[in-house]
């Protein structure tokens, strides 16, 4: 589904990157820990997080994340917004908690980046 439809499902507001609402999204990663994002999140996924600091934008840039969705009604720090504009990373914000946001997206067909990890064979879609 498109980022626009995701915005709709999550009742979200676009803070940065309105022009990217047509992007097709298939996978998502939910986390508040950046090292986990670095270890597991796939390119072109969306990142659902409660973190608001500029590092989420740099992490997203490093990994070619399609968009950042802030949860729990969080508003990013000013520096975060500025960096997102500069690095061209869309940021949306929703008042749903991470559980609810993940649940709604999952119900509508979005899947996790990695199906199973923790063994020697990492299976990724």
């Amino acid at each position: 589904m498109t980022l626009y439809e995701i915005m709709d499902i999550l009742d979200a507001k676009v803070l940065v990157g309105r022009k990217y609402l047509g992007t097709e999204i298939y996978t998502a990663f939910s986390a508040d820990l950046l090292s986990d994002v670095l270890a597991f999140a796939k390119a072109k996924s969306i990142l659902l997080t409660g973190l608001t600091n500029p590092q989420i934008v740099r992490t997203a840039s490093i990994l070619d994340i399609a968009a950042i969705i802030l949860v729990r009604g969080k508003i990013p720090q000013t520096e975060t917004l500025r960096l997102a504009e500069q690095l061209d990373i869309p940021i949306l914000t929703t008042r749903y908690i991470l559980f609810e946001a993940s649940g709604r997206l999952y119900t509508n067909g979005i899947r996790g980046c990695e199906i199973k990890v923790g063994t020697d064979d990492v299976i990724a879609i």
């Binding site: 820990l33 090292s35 986990d36 270890a39 973190l51 600091n53």
Partner: peptide, 15 residues
């Protein structure tokens, strides 16, 4: 609280 410090830094680099 900034989202770091999960203890994955060096393992991530290694992988």
């Amino acid at each position: 609280e900034m989202g770091f410090g999960a203890g994955m830094g060096i393992p991530n680099i290694m992988s």
